[in-house]
Design a protein around this nucleic acid. Sequence first.
DNA 1: GGAAACGTTGCGTCAACCGAAACACATTCT
DNA 2: AGAATGTGTTTCGGTTGACGCAACGTTTCC
Lengths: 258, 258
Amino acid sequence: MGNASSESPASVQSVDRALTILGILARLGEAGVTEIARELGVHKSTAFRLVATLESHGMVEQNEERGKYRLGVGVLRLAGATTARLDVVQEARPICRKLAADSGETVNIAVLSDRSALYLDQVAGQSALQSHNWVGQHIPLHATSNGKVLLSGLSADEIDNRLPRLPSYTSETVTTKARLRRDLAEVREQGYAVAVDELEIGLTAIAAPIRNAHGDVIASLSVSGPTFRLGEARVKELVPVVQDAADEVSRRLGYGTS
Amino acid sequence: MGNASSESPASVQSVDRALTILGILARLGEAGVTEIARELGVHKSTAFRLVATLESHGMVEQNEERGKYRLGVGVLRLAGATTARLDVVQEARPICRKLAADSGETVNIAVLSDRSALYLDQVAGQSALQSHNWVGQHIPLHATSNGKVLLSGLSADEIDNRLPRLPSYTSETVTTKARLRRDLAEVREQGYAVAVDELEIGLTAIAAPIRNAHGDVIASLSVSGPTFRLGEARVKELVPVVQDAADEVSRRLGYGTS
DNA sequence: GGAAACGTTGCGTCAACCGAAACACATTCT
DNA sequence: AGAATGTGTTTCGGTTGACGCAACGTTTCC
C-alpha cells in the first residue's frame, strides 16, 4: 500500500503523486478525492489540487455533477499518439480489424518486453462477450500463445535468462523447461502456437509470428476467445487465417520481399 | 507557443508542466530535454527532472542509450484501463438525446457486423410519426447512410469481400459497384453520407462517422426520418449538426488532437 | 582537435506547493 | 426536523520542495 513508486534518482514529488493517482484510477476504475488522498497518504486538499490539474489536461474526468473521478480521454489521445508511431501497430491495424471481423474474436498484437509479453493493441471481435482489454499489460511468456511465438524467435540462452521460473496458473500451464522446449520447437516448425486454458481456464488463443525485413520475430499476432467457442475444429480452421494475417503484416514490414 | 493550459482554478505548476510534456511528445513523437525545455519555457534541468519522473512511471522512455524521449508503455496501460470501461453506446447516448431533441428526428448508432450494419442504439425523435425500432437489426450496407459511412472506412478489398452482390430495394438503391465506389469516395471526402429512398421509399437518413483514438471508423451516427420532412434544404441544414454530434462522440473516445 | 551540442548532477534560493481548517452541499441517522 | 457525518471545494499562511544556475561528462560535428 501507500507509495508504489520506488527510489528515483531525480524525482518531482507532485508529479510523482499525480502519476500515482492515474495508476490508482486505472486500478480502481473510479475514486473520490478523499479515497485518493488516503491511498496517497496526503491531505484531501493536496489530492484535490492534483486531480484538478489532471482534469484540466483531460487526463481524468468527473462522474456526473461533482462526483468521483475516473481516467479521461486525454489518456486515449496519448495512447493513440504512442501506437501511431510504432510501425508494427500501424501496419497491423487494418489487418487486425479484418481478422477480428472475419473471425468474430478478439485480435491482439504483442511484443517482447523484458520478461513478459507486452500487449500493444487490441481489436475486439463483434461478439458481445469479449475478454477484457489486455492493452498495456504484461503477460507471462510461457502461458500464452503470443508468449510462445515471441520466445520461439530467441536462442536457448535468452529463453533461460528471461524465464528463471515457470509459475503455474492453471492445471494446463507449462511448468517444466523440457516441456517448454518441446512446445517451442513445435511452434518454430509449425509457424504458430496454440494455448488452451494455460493462462486462464476457458481461454483459448492462437498466435503467429510477425517478422521484419531481416526475418526476426518482432511481434506476435493472436486471436483469442472462450474455449467453448474455439474448439479443436474451429482452431484448426482459424490457424491458417491467423498465419495469413501475420504473414501479410510481415510482408508490409518488408519481410520476404527482396 | 508555450503554455497550452489556460487559467485553472486550482493548478499544480509542476504537474501542469509534466502533462504538457506528454502533449509535446504526443505531437512531436520524439524530443530531447533541451527541446522540451525550450517549448515549456523552463530550464533544462527542470525539464529533465520532470521527464525523469515521468520515466519512473513508464509514461515516457528513452530512445537508445541516453537519447531523446518518447511516450512509453505506461500510457498504454492507462489506456487499457480506460477503454475497458469506455463504450460507444454509453458515450454517445447523451449526445444522441440532444441531437434527437434538436432535430426532432430519430437518431441511431450502428456498427459494422460481418456483411451488414448492426444497429446498437436508437433515440426516438419527438415526432409522432417515427420509424420502427432498428436496434439489434442487421441492415444492408449499400442501401443506408450508416452503411456507406461504415464502408467508407474499409479498403477496396474488404468492401468487395463483404458485398458480393448489391440487392435492390427501391428504384434508388445503389446496385452497381462503380456507383458505390463513387458514393463512398464522396463520403470519405465530405465526411458524411445521405441516403434518400434507397432502402425504403419515403425514408431519408444522414450519417457521419464516429472514430476511435486511432482514427478508425468504429461506428456511425445517423439521423433519419420521412423524406417529406427531410427535404433537400432540411438535409443541408442537418448535415453539419449530425457531423458535430459524431465528432463530439469521437472526441469522447479519444479522437482528435490538442 | 576544438567547439558546440547533448543529457545529467549539486546546490542555494525563493516561490510554489502542501496541510490545516473552514465552507457548501448532500445524505443519513436519531 | 435537526444533528451528524459524509462528500468535494476554497482560502491562507509556513515551509518544504521544486526551480534556475552553473559545472560536468559525453557525444557529435565541423
